[in-house]
């Protein structure tokens, strides 16, 4: 049977991969996908803790699952707004590559 440590390590590796996507890639859309991976890693560890800490009634802690539900909702709203910003940016600059967006650079 997988232990809690298995789930936490897998969730941490998923977070690290999302972070690598944000830090190493230069395409705005891929950076956005990395953010989604990091949010999902947090969801996985929340659900794992909820299942492994049963309450006194012998049921998982459903507060964590409600929290995950909220995270998914906020992430969906964030994706909609972020992609609209990327489209507006593309309309102004014809690029989604962060190295080409250096107007504010000193």
């Amino acid at each position: 049977m997988p232990t809690l440590a298995h789930y936490l390590i897998v969730s941490g590796l998923l977070f690290a991969l999302g972070m690598a996507g944000v830090l190493l890639r230069r395409n705005l859309l891929i950076i956005f996908m990395g953010l989604e991976l990091m949010l999902n890693a947090a969801n996985l560890s929340l659900v794992a803790f909820s299942r492994f800490n049963l309450g006194p009634d012998g049921m998982p802690n459903y507060n964590a699952q409600v929290f995950v539900f909220f995270i998914i909702t906020v992430a969906a709203a964030e994706v909609a707004v972020g992609l609209a910003i990327i489209v507006a940016l593309y309309r102004a600059k014809q690029t989604t590559h962060v190295d080409d967006l250096n107007t504010l650079k000193f």
């Binding site: 232990t3 440590a5 936490l8 049921m59 998982p60």
Partner: peptide, 23 residues
């Protein structure tokens, strides 16, 4: 990040529990 995570998780024996059975 990965090495800090592994160090913390592997040093806590309380995390090596299997899933408790649901009532």
């Amino acid at each position: 990040f990965i090495s800090a995570l592994l160090k913390v998780v592997l040093s806590l024996p309380a995390l090596f529990v299997t899933k408790p059975a649901m009532l």
